[in-house]
Structure formats: structure tokens, C-alpha cells
Design a protein around this nucleic acid. Structure first.
Length: 878
RNA sequence: GGGCGGAUAGCUCAAUGGGAGAGCUACGGCUUUACACGCCGUCGGUUGCAGGUUCGAGUCCUGUUCCGCCCACCA
């Protein structure tokens, strides 16, 4: 038997096996392999990113599925890759340049993009390397980047086709403008800062003297926008103001006359003064009013958030300075009508944090309604299933109320919009410049300077990675993919968009299942964030406890529909699990000398038992993974390994190993069970703990060789059940546990052997076969007896009273124990009596349920009687 | 304003309508020859609250409180 290191070397194993797998190309999928495919595309992390807990959880769960399916005989492919992440990446490089005193704008577009590429080549591999530390089994030969030439082609195709179908249009709309990044944003990229304390400030617009004079009071949270007001609206049925509709106001600062209009949709007469200032170019509601009433739409802001020439004397001021200045100027004119506290939401850019301005702007949009419908019904009809299903409602709700998607971004890093303009402004959308020139019949065309929303390219990921629009073999084999594993935070950003893009362009849903996992939070349930300082770095955890323990922890935490509350104690605990397994292996090695997998074997009851238990565990683990109940899979393996294989089988195996009279065939059978069960364990566990299991597999005698990662996943049918052995060992376990409890409570150390006296012939005969086990596991010597000595402790096994003779010193403790036990059983019994005394229960409950309670009652009765008589006897003697 | 999720042992979490469990912690014992990163045992509960359905509710229904999240244009 080969030498086994004293401890498991997590780091060494990770390095060794990662390399070995790569060298052997075991994760490289063969498109010609005609076994059924199982394919997954990674949610591509930002190329700027570094691995955080969310990535770790996400990729561990994918790896569990992928490794499981690979072992289980599927042609398995996991496509890795990264996302170019427009805004985020542009910022990273922009800041680096700023640190060198360079303004990226001075560099010019081409040079800047060149810089970003250089940076990407140098630093973009960080997250990929970090993923490898986690042990993911991606097919790196198929790694993709969303700006790869092929994927650019796919994005262009996507855009052009949608444009040709009338599903993409260019138009002037009110969009979300980020004055810091100076780009438009989609609705999803804007977050609301909720419950901000602000003020609702009122001022008066004077009514023209020729319209009768007087004033009308309006309120606003953004005073500076009054510079863009082109109307004041009242409710058409409001008796207070009805008569003013059609009259005109004089703007106090700019040379403009403002009509009073009636609008029943905008105005709630109950709110504020019942009069609303209308700024169509800077408020979504007002924009609609502007369209309804054909009002002028006056943009008062520059792209960096200052007042433009329309701002009159406030022109050039920053928007927030202008706010104060406008208020002051109004007050000077005596038009200030006071302010009151007001709690409001402030829209901020998800990326930059800047306060977003609604701004009238010409941008590119995707018409969503026609695309959303099929995406919805595909899920409704079950072509794609969300796990847990509750997320389907979230998905439906978003698609139901969807609005058009603003896809143009005023950035330099990203997919350039395939649209060209002639000098006269005529627009040509084409796949290439040449195609545009051909369409235009001239070559003095200028390409649209904007790039596309990053998510516009991510939407194609499940098929662009396979070469779409080309009809590749990979596309035919691996698309649609089997499952998408992702977090709920990008159901709208990504999942929904992949759904409609996939359905629209390929005619089929991009994945059969969507498994939605939770967020990783800290121990207190708070979101991890750099500002809070509660971020846990996965690489630090891996470094300290090893990737196996880390992955096991993540999987054990991944209960459906629950957030993961990170608790460092759990990793420590599971690192002990790796140690436990290693030591079990060590035990097998120490006693495995002479093992011959093909030699004669004679199984004993314990071998039959562990085989049956293994089969049951295999089935439970398979069921759990099949149902995406990852935490259950982890806990089943944990309990089986620790609670059955180690706690029971290893101990029971000693009865043969240490038995000088046991035959070689018996010993060989035990060695086989030790190694074979370990072989089942490492295969069962491999998807969760890839390195430890590969390390063990490589050393395990009796395996066919090769990697565990390509070994077949255990099947329950390989481990036949055996009802006799199960019942037999259950009885033994009951006896051992009973003796141990008495030892524990009466405080008899194991150094003191006890006798277990049995009068019942059948029980004695049954336990006799296990007398060595009783000795080994409970320190009890089995003896047949006619009567029990007065000074003894009571052990009840299978409702039969047995006795453990006790030296004088333990009798007091035994009396206490019996008292407590009697109280417990009495209580127990009274509940059972109550239940079974209930006529309706006995009549209406299913027979097997009633029968179950009856047998529990008779067991409790027997136990109580035994306890009572034992106590009586002891007290009589005392 | 609408919607979703959660609330179970000190902590983190389980429990197809059939007597509420596990791990960790705590407490007691054990240097038993794989493992003290261990072994054996014990304590610990009005399942947020109030109703209802049912022979039977942590589980289903109604209401309610707290926590978290998502969506939404009230100036």
C-alpha cells in the first residue's frame, strides 16, 4: 500500500489537478461526440472585475451541475468568457489616464480605444485566473469576449435586422441623462435613492394684466426647471382654476409667455395647490403633457449639467447652483410662496452615482412590446422554467409593463452603432461601411459616434458564443443551452433580454431552465459593500481554507429562495470535513494491506449494510442535484460520510480487521467495502469538492484509473439495498446508542467495561452476532442472563428490557436518570394517548398513520413499564 | 402606490397536512491504536401575532406586525 501524506494539501492538489485537467483537455467539449448534450454559458463577468462572493457562488453552482452531468454521461460544455462592460471599463482606463494627467478626451477616440484594448490584454485576465482558482471546469478553448470580432458581427446583425424589421428606431425622446459620464442610460440603469428629505417649494407665476392679473401658485422640488416651463396645468374640472384655462402667464426671467392649460391626466386637484408647472424637456410626465398639448420643449441644460443659453441670466451655472439662484431671484421679485418638507426619491446613475437628469435627446431605441410578448409566453408555456418558480412572476411583471429600451450610449468603448449619415443627414443602417456606401450611392458618410448598451450584446451571449449568425456545428449541438445559473438582480438586465433575443433570432428559447440564486450577504444580512467594509474576498477564503471547503460552504448555503448569509465559521467547519474524509482514507490505507479487488470476498452484515446505505445516499444526492436543491445535496453527502461511513462503518469494520480469526476472504471484503465506498463518496462529492476528490481518486486502489472528473457518477442501482441487513444493523445501533447514553448520563468512562445482560432469547441471538461490535463501539460485553441483579442500569432495546450491572458508585446517577427518563416517556405517552383517544383521528386519519402512532404507543408503554420497575427495584435496594 | 420574499432552539438554517429536526454554540464526559480539525452524551422551542379550515397546521386560508428586496411619473 502506497504511502499517504498525513494531511490533505489543498493548495498543492488544486495546482496539480488544475494543470492535469488542462493538459488532458478533459473539459474541452467534442462537438462530434454524439452523447446527449448538456451546455451552459457563463454569465460573463466584467472584464474589469475581480472575483467577489457573488461570482464565487454563481460559478460554483454552475460547476456542480456541469461536473455532475459530465460524469453522468453527457456531452458537456461550459462556455466561459468576459463582458466588455462599456461604462465600467471606460471609467477604469479613464481614471488611469487621469492619474497620469491625461484627459481621455484629448487623446481622441481612436487612441483611447487603443489604450483600453491594451489594458484589456494586460489586466483583463485577472478574473479568469481567479475563476480557475475556484476550480471551474470551463472549456477554455471556447473562451469568448463580447467584443471579439465574431461577437461584433453578431451584434451588428442583431441591430441591422431589428432595424430592418422596424423594431429599432432613432428618435427624440425623454431619456435618462448622466451628466457625469455624459451618456444616456436605460431605465434599468437608474436607481432611486429613496426617502430623501427635501422640500417642495412654491412660487407664483403672475397672470398677464390683460388676462385679468393675479397669480397662480405652483410647487416644485427642482426650482431651476422653471426656466424650461412652457405651461402651467390645472385640472379642467377644478372650479378654482377652470376659468383660467387659456389665459397667459409671463415668465419672470426669460422672454416667454406661458399658457395655462387644462390636463386631467397630469393634475391631481387634491395635491399641492392643484396647479402644476410643466417642463416638457425635463420631466417624463411633463413630456407627455407637452406632446398632448403641442407645447414647446425647451432643453435648458448642457450635457455636463449646467444651464445653457435658455437659462437666461442663469446660463453657465451648475444645475444645483442655479437651483439656489432661481429661488433667490424669485424671492427678490416677491413671488416666493414658501416651502414645506417633502420626502422624495432621487434618481441616480447605477454606475456613476450622479443624479440623473431627464433630458430630451435623440437616441436609438428598441421597440419592446413586440419582443416582450413571445418572451413572456415562452415561460408561460413552459419552454423555459425558472427555479424557484416564483421568479417567473417578477419576469412577467417586467415584460408586461415594459417600455422602449434606449440602447445608444455616448461612450467610446463598446459596439459601435452600425449607422451612417450622409452630409444631408440621411441615415443608412448597414452591416458594413461598404454596404452603407452602396446603399447611399456616395462615400462621404459618417458613422454614428455612439456605442450600444453593453446588455445589447449580452442579450446574444447564449448563441453569439457559438458563432451565430453563422450556422456552426457548435450552435447546432449546444444551443439551446440546458440551464442558466444567475442572480435575481439581472433577471431584467440580462435574462429577459436573452429570452426575447433568443426567441426572435433563433426561434427557440436560449435555455431550458433558469436557476436563480440569491445574493451573498454578510453575517448580519447586510449587502457586502466596500463602503461598509464587510466585503469578504473569496481568494482570501480559498487561501485560508482551500477551494474545496469554500465551495462546499457555498453549496451548503445555497437553499432556494434564501439569501446566503456568509458565516466564516461554516468554512472552518467544512474544512474539517475535508480532514475527516482524509483521515477516513488514511484508516482505509492503514488497514488495506493485501487488498485484492479481484480476490475472494465474503461479505458480512456490515458490508451489506454500508452498500445499502450508499445506494440510498446516492439516490438522495442525485434527486437533490436534479432538483437544484444544492444545499440538500451537500448535507446528504456530509451526513452520509460523517454519520454513516465514518461513525458506523469504519468502527464496525474494526470487528473484522482486528479479528485474528477472520478469514482472508472476510478481510478482503471489508477492505473492498472501505475502498469501494470511498470511491463512491469521492465520485458523489466530486462536483462540489473537485480537488480533494481527484487527489483521493488518484490514490485509491481498485479504481479503473483515469480522472474522477471523467469517472461515472454513482448510480443507486450499483449499491443494492438489503432489508435484512438494514433491520439487523438498526437493532445493533439501538443497542449501542442505549449503552452509550447510559454511559454518558451515569458517567461511566469507556475505560470501564460494562456487561449488557439480555434475558430475551431472540434479542440475545440477534445481538450475539454483533457481540464484537457491542464491545468495540459501546465497551459492552454481551451476556445471556436469567435474571437481572438488583444493582443495575436499565437498557431498553427494541422494547425489550436489558440490564447493565452497576457498581455501587453509579446507582445514584442511575436513579436520577431513570427519573428524568420516566418523566419524559410519561409526557410522551400522554400525548400519544390523547391523540389515539381522539375518535375522529382514529376514524378519519389514514390507517398507516394511526398504526404508526399505535406502535409508538406500545413501545413507549413497554419502555415506561421497564423504567418504572427498574426504578422500583433500585429504590427498594437503596 | 403595487408586488415578492422572510420571520422556527442563543446563532445559521431544515422539515410532500401526520408527534418540530440538523449543524454550530453552550454544558458534561473521554488522550478508545483514522481523525482533539476527534469521539460519546446532554440541555435548548407557545414555529412573529390573531383568527379560520381540518381528525390533525410550522405547512393551507384571512387579517396583522416587523425585517429585507423589486417595480412605479404624483408636481
Amino acid at each position: 500500500m502506497a504511502e499517504l501524506p498525513k494531511e490533505y494539501d489543498a493548495k498543492g492538489s488544486a495546482a496539480r489537478w488544475s494543470q492535469a485537467w488542462t493538459d488532458a483537455g478533459v473539459f474541452t467539449a467534442d462537438v462530434a461526440d454524439d452523447r446527449p448534450p448538456f451546455s451552459v454559458v457563463i454569465p460573463p463577468p466584467n472584464v474589469t472585475g475581480s472575483l467577489h462572493m457573488g461570482h464565487a457562488l454563481n460559478n460554483t453552482l454552475q460547476d456542480v451541475l456541469v461536473r455532475y452531468k459530465r460524469m453522468d454521461g453527457y456531452n458537456t460544455l461550459w462556455v466561459p468568457g468576459t463582458d466588455h462592460a462599456g461604462i465600467a471599463t471606460q471609467w477604469v482606463v479613464r481614471r488611469q489616464l487621469e492619474a497620469q494627467g491625461i484627459d481621455f478626451r484629448d487623446l481622441g477616440r481612436e487612441a483611447f480605444v487603443e489604450k483600453v484594448w491594451t489594458w484589456k490584454e494586460e489586466a483583463g485576465g485577472t478574473i479568469v485566473n481567479q475563476l480557475k482558482h475556484l476550480g471551474v471546469s470551463c472549456d477554455w478553448s471556447r473562451e469568448r469576449f463580447t467584443l471579439d470580432p465574431d461577437l461584433q458581427k453578431a451584434v451588428t446583425e442583431h441591430f441591422v435586422r431589428l432595424y430592418e424589421e422596424g423594431l429599432i428606431y432613432r428618435g427624440q425622446r425623454l431619456i435618462n441623462w448622466d451628466p457625469l459620464d455624459q451618456t444616456a442610460l436605460s431605465d434599468l440603469e437608474v436607481e432611486q435613492d429613496e426617502g430623501v428629505k427635501g422640500e417642495l417649494w412654491s412660487f407664483a407665476y403672475p397672470i398677464r394684466p390683460e388676462d385679468g392679473g393675479g397669480e397662480i401658485v405652483v410647487a416644485t422640488t427642482r426650482p431651476e426647471t422653471m426656466l424650461g416651463d412652457t405651461a402651467v396645468a390645472v385640472h379642467p374640472d377644478d372650479p378654482r382654476y377652470r376659468h383660467l384655462i387659456g389665459k397667459t402667464l409671463k415668465h419672470p426671467f426669460v422672454d416667454r409667455e406661458i399658457p395655462i392649460i387644462g390636463d386631467a391626466i397630469l393634475v391631481d386637484p387634491e395635491f399641492g395647490t392643484g396647479c402644476v408647472k410643466v417642463t416638457p424637456a425635463h420631466d417624463p410626465n411633463d413630456f407627455e403633457v407637452g406632446k398632448r398639448h403641442k407645447l414647446p420643449m425647451i432643453n435648458i441644460l448642457t450635457l455636463d449639467g449646467k444651464l445653457n443659453a435658455e437659462g437666461g441670466k442663469f446660463a453657465g451655472m451648475d444645475r444645483f447652483d442655479a437651483r439656489k439662484a432661481v429661488k433667490a431671484a424669485i424671492a427678490e421679485l416677491g413671488l416666493d410662496r414658501g416651502a414645506r418638507d417633502h420626502v422624495m426619491n432621487i434618481p441616480r446613475s447605477q454606475r456613476s452615482g450622479a443624479i440623473v437628469e431627464p433630458m430630451l435627446s435623440t437616441q436609438w431605441f428598441v421597440r419592446m412590446k413586440p419582443l416582450a410578448g413571445p418572451a413572456r409566453s415562452a415561460v408561460e408555456q413552459g419552454f423555459t422554467t425558472f427555479v424557484p418558480t416564483q421568479w417567473e412572476n417578477t419576469y412577467y411583471a417586467w415584460l408586461r409593463d415594459i417600455r422602449d429600451w434606449c440602447i445608444s450610449r455616448q461612450l467610446w468603448w463598446g459596439h459601435r452603432i452600425p449607422a451612417w449619415y450622409a452630409p444631408d443627414g440621411t441615415l443608412y443602417v448597414a452591416r458594413t461601411f461598404e454596404e452603407a456606401v452602396a446603399k447611399a450611392g456616395r462615400d462621404d458618410l459618417v458613422q454614428d459616434p455612439d456605442v450600444l448598451d453593453t446588455w445589447f450584446s449580452s442579450a446574444l451571449w447564449p448563441f453569439s458564443v457559438f458563432g451565430w449568425p453563422a450556422k456552426t456545428a457548435d450552435l447546432a449541438k449546444y444551443y439551446p443551452t440546458s440551464v442558466l445559473v444567475t442572480g435575481f438582480d439581472i433577471i431584467f438586465f440580462w435574462v429577459a433580454r436573452m429570452m426575447f433575443a433568443g426567441i426572435h433570432f433563433t426561434g427557440s428559447v436560449p435555455f431550458a431552465d433558469v436557476y436563480i440564486h440569491a445574493l451573498v450577504r454578510d453575517q448580519h444580512g447586510d449587502k457586502m459593500s466596500k463602503t461598509k467594509g464587510n466585503v469578504v474576498d473569496p481568494l482570501t477564503v480559498i487561501d485560508q481554507w482551500g477551494a474545496d471547503a469554500f465551495r462546499f460552504t457555498l453549496v451548503a448555503f445555497a437553499a432556494q429562495g434564501r439569501d446566503v448569509l456568509w458565516d466564516p465559521a461554516r468554512v472552518e467547519g467544512y474544512s474539517k470535513f475535508t480532514n475527516k474524509i482524509w483521515n477516513a482514507l488514511k484508516f482505509a490505507f492503514m488497514n488495506g494491506e493485501g487488498y485484492d479487488p479481484n480476490g475472494p470476498m465474503e461479505d458480512g452484515p456490515y458490508e451489506l449494510w454500508i452498500r445499502a446505505r450508499t445506494g440510498a445516499a446516492v439516490q438522495r444526492v442525485r434527486d437533490a442535484i436534479d432538483g437544484y436543491r444544492f444545499n440538500e445535496a451537500a448535507s446528504e453527502i456530509y451526513n452520509f460520510v460523517w454519520g454513516e461511513y465514518c461513525d458506523w462503518y469504519l468502527e464496525l469494520s474494526k470487528t473484522t480487521i482486528y479479528d485474528a480469526e477472520a478469514s482472508e476472504a472476510r478481510k478482503n471484503a471489508v477492505r473492498h467495502a472501505l475502498f469501494d465506498t470511498m470511491g463512491a463518496i469521492v465520485r458523489l462529492l466530486h462536483p462540489i469538492m473537485p480537488f480533494l476528490t481527484e487527489e483521493i481518486w488518484s490514490r485509491l486502489p481498485g479504481t479503473p484509473g483515469g480522472f474522477v472528473t471523467t469517472a461515472p457518477y454513482p448510480k443507486a442501482s450499483d449499491y443494492p439495498s438489503d432489508a435484512t441487513a438494514l433491520a439487523d444493523i438498526a437493532r445493533l445501533q439501538e443497542a449501542v446508542t442505549e449503552v452509550r447514553r447510559i454511559r454518558g448520563e451515569v458517567q461511566i468512562p469507556y475505560s470501564v467495561k460494562v456487561e449488557l445482560l439480555v434475558t430475551d432469547d431472540r434479542l440475545y441471538a440477534a445481538l450475539y452476532r454483533h457481540r464484537r461490535a457491542l464491545d468495540e463501539l459501546a465497551g459492552a460485553t454481551l451476556k445471556q442472563a436469567d435474571t437481572f441483579p438488583q444493582a443495575s442500569s436499565l437498557a431498553v432495546v427494541q422494547s425489550v428490557a436489558c440490564a447493565i450491572p452497576l457498581p455501587e458508585q453509579y446507582l445514584k446517577a442511575e436513579i436520577d436518570r431513570l427519573g428524568k427518563e420516566i418523566a419524559k416517556v410519561t409526557d410522551d405517552l400522554s400525548q400519544l394517548d390523547r391523540k389515539l383517544g381522539n375518535k375522529s383521528f382514529v376514524e378519519r386519519a389514514p390507517a398507516d398513520v394511526v398504526e404508526g402512532f399505535r406502535s409508538k404507543r406500545s413501545a413507549a408503554n413497554a419502555r415506561l413499564a421497564a423504567l418504572q420497575s427498574s426504578l422500583d427495584q433500585l429504590q427498594a435496594g437503596a
